[in-house]
């Protein structure tokens, strides 16, 4: 998609315009070459010119703004170094400065963190978010990692099989995923089943994996029950509290992440603190029950079986 905007790939059909200027329009027969589109593209692998210094790379975009942009992204001290001599994060900032130096009408970031190793990614992500927040240029970023979108605090458009399936703030997507793909992307559990009216105004969903779940949301037919891993608690035996939903199974896997442990119980993923996992004596193969409130669930229609909500 970014290549289409930048003019490196021609879409079969459509129209690309930024502000008042039309860059591509199949109906009008417009297709400007990349060099005539005011676009700053940061490639996934940065595509820095290996035979030029950092300063000359940035100046390639625009001589006048080069020094200012290098200072902005904090690489002035690397001016004389070649791309092969600096770190991945520094390369990314060089690519960003180079793209900004040509004073683009739109800044395109193609998975800007994918080329970095996980250890430095969080750090570079934070810096990138701060930088992008200071720019008065529209930024379009493509990512497969929701953490990137979260860091940049921007509007998110989720693309699935070439189509935008949902657009909105990240919080909205989290609260109300329009499709199962969005729910999965946000890291939520998705339990497929069939919905029917349940007791006390609740909806009862018969899960494909067996058992039933109650939801506070309305829905009929084929649905996916969406519940966030941090809304799921684990207990031994049958709970007697207000949590209406329980899925009993054995622990399939335990994945520690910092002070938390991600536990897979049957079809359900639960995030529990490392402390409680320890106290419960969770081990792979141990029987355990996952519980969550009916109000912690959302229902999404399953793809292909009901038309998606009006966009």
């Amino acid at each position: 998609m970014l290549e289409a905007i930048a003019g490196l790939r021609a879409p079969a059909q459509g129209r690309i315009c930024v502000g008042d200027s039309v860059w591509f329009d199949t109906d009008a027969g417009v297709d400007l070459p990349p060099e005539r589109r005011s676009v700053g593209l940061v490639f996934q692998d940065y595509a820095l010119f290996p035979h030029m210094t950092v300063a000359r790379n940035v100046a390639f975009g625009g001589r006048e703004r080069a020094d200012e942009m290098m200072a902005l992204v904090g690489i002035s001290h690397l001016a004389g170094a070649r791309p092969g001599e600096i770190s991945g994060g520094e390369r990314q900032r060089t690519a960003l400065a180079r793209a900004l130096a040509c004073d683009p009408a739109v800044l395109l970031l193609d998975e800007p963190l994918a080329a970095l190793d996980p250890a430095t990614r969080a750090d570079v992500r934070a810096r990138l978010a701060e930088l992008v927040g200071h720019l008065d240029v529209p930024v379009l970023m493509v990512t497969h990692d929701m953490a990137d979108a979260a860091a940049l605090q921007c509007d998110v458009a989720v693309m699935d099989q070439g189509r935008v399936v949902q657009r909105g703030a990240r919080a909205d997507l989290l609260a109300r995923p329009a499709t199962p793909a969005v729910a999965r992307l946000m890291g939520a559990n998705l339990l497929p089943g069939t919905a029917r009216p349940g007791p006390a105004g609740l909806t009862e969903v018969v899960l494909d994996t067996g058992g039933t779940v109650l939801s506070g949301e309305g829905g009929t037919g084929r649905v996916g029950v969406v519940v966030d891993p941090w809304e799921v608690s684990l207990v031994h035996g049958r709970p007697g509290d207000s949590q209406l939903n329980h899925v009993t199974g054995t622990v399939a896997s335990l994945t520690p992440a910092g002070n938390r442990v991600r536990v897979q119980v049957g079809p359900v993923t639960a995030d529990v603190t490392a402390l409680s996992a320890d106290r419960m004596g969770l081990v792979v193969g141990a029987p355990v029950t996952a519980v969550f409130k009916a109000l912690a669930t959302r229902l999404v229609p399953l793809a292909g079986e009901t038309p998606p909500a009006a966009a």
């Binding site: 003019g7 060099e35 700053g40 593209l41 595509a47 010119f49 390639f60 180079r98």
Partner: peptide
């Protein structure tokens, strides 16, 4: 990629 990058940076 480098040729594409140069083009997006406005180079003829």
């Amino acid at each position: 990629r480098l040729v594409q990058a140069a083009a997006t940076l406005g180079a003829r």
